[in-house]
Simulated assay, not measured.
Amino acid sequence: MSSESATQNLTLVQAVRDGLYGEMERDDDVLVMGEDVGRNGGVFRATQGLYEEFGADRVVDTPLAESGIVGTAIGMAAYGLRPVPELQFAGFMYPGFDQIVSHAARLRTRSRGRYTCPITIRAPYGGGIRAPEHHSESKEAFYTHEPGLKVVVPSTPADAKGLLAAAIRDPDPVVVLEPKLIYRAFRESVPEEPYTVELGTAEVRREGEDISVFTWGAMVRKTLDAAEELAEDGVDVEVVDLRTLKPMDTDTIVASFEKTGRAAVVHEAPKTGGLAGEIIATIQEEALLYQEAPVTRITGFDVPFPLYALEDYYLPETARIKDGITEAVEF
């Protein structure tokens, strides 16, 4: 990717659409499918204009049947296509869960390598938009637990386009969870031509010396805001955006922790069974002798995602993230 490449100023959802367009133009085997993705352009307009550009054979409106959407995509992938099914919300993925974990994730090993399953399952995830039940879940840990799946969560427009392209080109199934809270929250410069961001690589968004904070998705911006406020109090926070939750970039996690000796993990999923526990276990296994304080978990609560009145309390906001970081620093 040349430093002189033409760029465009995009929101995250526009970058998703741009990434889809680029991969569909580059490879005739790539197709998009899902509920209302065609003429309507998707519930968040992530596929807007693709139907007019590529036609009904490559932008396929499906019935409201998540199991059927994923199952059909698996069959397409086994015979050489690269389908990108959109499931309207991550909370609607459960009817397709059996297809994802019992078939998509296992096709390579089940066929002893004869078949692969190059599907990219996209779904908006996370809270903060005042949606009703089943529209705000953050259940990324479900999918990271399954061998054979990769799991990606972008936090910026540039990463959204590059990670999506890498996922589509990958020979195995990838779940791309898009943080809808920041779909249109900000813009940044994104190269016009297709490019990839390597799966399995974290990005240090802010260098720091006092504590490492590991996070992803919509929580990256909130964590960066907390870090800037804490800097005024003399606390130097390093913020690491994991970007790919599986495979997880343990090298970057360990290197950051060895530098600071203290850590916190921020995610909006419930605390119990959340990925914070896996990250902490990695630190214990790989860098225990560098540890100066217990690792703080700043997460959602172990309750169903609440409706409007309590949504802001449930999600880790800047103030709660600051408190958690301060607890680890002052231990």
Rank of each mutant, 00 (worst) to 15 (best):
D233L: 12
D233I: 06
D233F: 08
D233P: 03
D233Q: 15
G234E: 11
G234D: 09
G234F: 11
G234I: 12
G234S: 08
G234P: 08
V235F: 11
V235Y: 12
D236I: 06
D236V: 04
V237S: 00
V237F: 01
V237E: 01
E238V: 02
E238C: 02
E238F: 04
E238G: 01
V239Y: 00
D241H: 03
L242N: 02
L242I: 00
L242T: 02
L242M: 07
R243N: 00
T244A: 06
T244S: 14
T244V: 05
L245C: 05
L245F: 05
L245M: 05
L245H: 02
L245Y: 05
K246D: 10
K246P: 03
K246S: 12
K246M: 10
K246V: 08
P247N: 11
P247G: 06
P247A: 07
P247D: 09
P247L: 07
M248Y: 10
M248R: 15
M248F: 13
D249N: 12
D249M: 12
D249S: 11
D249C: 11
D249V: 11
T250E: 15
T250F: 11
T250D: 14
T250N: 10
D251L: 13
T252N: 04
T252A: 14
I253N: 04
I253C: 09
I253T: 03
V254Y: 02
V254I: 09
V254F: 02
V254P: 00
V254K: 01
V254W: 01
A255K: 09
A255E: 15
A255D: 15
A255I: 00
S256D: 02
S256H: 00
S256A: 14
F257G: 00
F257A: 01
F257C: 01
E258W: 05
E258Q: 15
K259L: 08
K259R: 15
K259G: 05
K259V: 03
K259T: 13
T260Q: 04
T260A: 03
T260L: 03
G261Y: 02
R262T: 05
R262L: 06
A263Q: 06
A263D: 06
A263E: 05
A264D: 10
V265H: 13
V265P: 10
V265F: 15
V265A: 12
V266S: 08
V266W: 06
V266D: 09
V266A: 08
V266G: 09
V266P: 09
H267Q: 15
H267C: 09
H267G: 10
E268C: 03
A269M: 07
A269P: 02
P270N: 09
P270W: 12
P270Y: 10
P270M: 12
P270S: 10
K271Q: 14
K271L: 14
K271Y: 13
K271P: 01
K271A: 15
T272A: 15
T272P: 07
T272V: 15
T272C: 14
T272F: 15
G274S: 10
G274K: 07
G274A: 08
G274T: 08
G274V: 07
L275G: 08
A276E: 12
A276L: 10
A276M: 08
A276F: 10
A276W: 12
G277W: 12
G277D: 11
G277E: 14
G277V: 12
G277P: 06
G277Y: 13
E278M: 08
E278V: 11
I279M: 14
I279C: 08
I279L: 14
I279E: 04
I280P: 06
A281N: 08
A281W: 04
T282C: 12
T282W: 00
T282P: 02
I283M: 01
I283F: 00
